[in-house]
Simulated scan of single mutants.
Amino acid sequence: MKAIGLYEYLPIKDSNSLLEEEVATPKATGRDILVEIKAVSVNPVDTKQRMANKEREASLRILGYDASGIVKEVGEDCLLFNVGDEVYYAGDVTRQGSNADYQLVDEQLVAKKPESFTYSQAAAMPLTSITAWESLYDRMKITEEDAGKSILIIGGAGGVGSIAIQLAARSRLEVIATASRQETIDWCHVMGAHHVINHSQPVHAQLREIGYEHVDYILCLADTNEHWDAMADSIKAQGTICAIVENKKPIDMTKIRAKSVTFCWEFMFTRSMFQTEDQSEQHRMLTKMAAMFDQGELKHTMTNTLSPINVNTLKEAHRILEDGRMIGKLVIENERNQ
């Protein structure tokens, strides 16, 4: 099968940053399913993984953490899927990725794709949807009893922010998103934000201007260090902050100590990386969100497509993501599958 990956961890402009090769097609065993890839999405985690190591790989490492396709084989222990099922998933960062003709993935991380979505629309959603869902409901423990509380989503126009806004609004929270350009401001409103403020200007002062002395929840989807002081000032006493971007220098936790604020991290690959007993929660999340997409309660966030899936389009996608101006999600689709 064809696969795109790397041996060395290099800047995208390097000719060897991503390479296309023929590799053996894997076989499904245990709870793995073999998926024929129809479309993939490219996320910031792809670009980070491309630069994550200094060691040279002995064999091609395949990236890619969002995909949709058709089940071609099932392992002997599979319970959830049959050959021919149309699925979507984000996979496991510790295993070979989706930038290939076929991929093995644990069925507990997979769900049937929304029936109303194309493969491309479906491929746009798993990683960001799981990240947003886990942030709101697993990490910050938001329930229906929290309706009417306020949440500040820093970086609202990106892939995770776009679905987090929708989920938070659906949970009847008062949603304040941040954006700094007119097109990203407009996008956040379309996604359902009640207010949009500019994260490049003093955040707490802007919150006060729109009637919020403090907020109950903060979901930080941008540079955690850069926004830490603003979050510490803006969070309500006994509130909760969740962040997804790793800190590059120590965080001064004393700034939130007196408020008894809860701080938590969200990493979408935790369940698969550590083989937690509740890995199947990601199957459940994606299944529930597929129903929401089909019922029109949530909408896809795909805004850009490239084709076909090859080394050149993947390099272009990485360049676009690293530019830092992406709104919504970027998908690469196979021309022969459309």
Results as ranks from 00 to 15, higher is better:
2 K>A: 07
5 G>L: 07
5 G>Q: 05
7 Y>Q: 00
8 E>I: 07
8 E>G: 14
12 I>D: 07
12 I>K: 06
14 D>W: 03
15 S>F: 05
19 L>Y: 09
20 E>H: 10
22 E>L: 08
28 A>P: 06
32 D>W: 07
36 E>Q: 02
39 A>N: 04
49 Q>K: 12
51 M>E: 07
52 A>W: 10
52 A>G: 06
55 E>M: 08
57 E>V: 11
57 E>I: 08
60 L>A: 07
61 R>D: 14
63 L>I: 07
63 L>M: 14
65 Y>Q: 08
68 S>G: 04
70 I>S: 10
72 K>Q: 10
75 G>T: 01
77 D>S: 13
77 D>K: 13
77 D>N: 13
78 C>T: 04
80 L>E: 14
81 F>M: 08
82 N>R: 12
82 N>T: 13
84 G>H: 12
84 G>T: 14
86 E>H: 01
87 V>G: 03
89 Y>A: 07
90 A>F: 10
95 R>Y: 05
98 S>L: 09
99 N>Y: 13
100 A>K: 02
102 Y>C: 00
103 Q>V: 03
104 L>D: 07
106 D>K: 01
106 D>R: 00
107 E>Y: 01
107 E>F: 01
109 L>K: 02
109 L>D: 08
110 V>R: 00
112 K>P: 01
117 F>Q: 01
120 S>V: 15
130 I>F: 10
132 A>Q: 01
136 L>V: 00
136 L>G: 01
140 M>A: 04
141 K>L: 14
141 K>S: 09
147 A>R: 07
149 K>E: 10
149 K>N: 15
154 I>Q: 01
157 A>T: 13
157 A>Y: 12
161 G>M: 04
165 I>V: 03
168 A>H: 10
170 R>A: 15
170 R>V: 12
177 A>N: 09
180 S>N: 13
180 S>G: 14
181 R>G: 15
181 R>F: 15
184 T>A: 11
186 D>G: 14
189 H>T: 11
191 M>D: 05
193 A>S: 13
193 A>K: 09
195 H>K: 12
195 H>V: 13
197 I>L: 05
199 H>Y: 14
204 H>S: 06
206 Q>D: 15
206 Q>K: 09
208 R>Y: 11
214 H>A: 10
214 H>V: 12
223 D>T: 04
224 T>Y: 02
228 W>L: 02
229 D>Y: 13
234 S>H: 02
239 G>N: 01
240 T>I: 08
242 C>Q: 06
242 C>S: 14
244 I>V: 05
246 E>N: 06
250 P>R: 02
256 I>V: 09
261 V>T: 05
267 F>Y: 09
271 R>T: 01
271 R>C: 01
272 S>I: 00
275 Q>Y: 11
276 T>P: 03
277 E>G: 13
278 D>T: 09
281 E>H: 09
284 R>I: 07
286 L>K: 03
287 T>G: 15
288 K>E: 10
289 M>C: 10
289 M>R: 06
291 A>H: 13
295 Q>M: 08
297 E>D: 07
298 L>T: 07
299 K>P: 09
300 H>C: 09
305 T>P: 11
306 L>D: 06
308 P>A: 01
312 N>P: 13
318 H>W: 10
319 R>P: 15
322 E>L: 00
327 I>K: 01
330 L>M: 08
330 L>T: 03
330 L>R: 02
333 E>D: 12
336 R>Q: 14
337 N>Y: 15
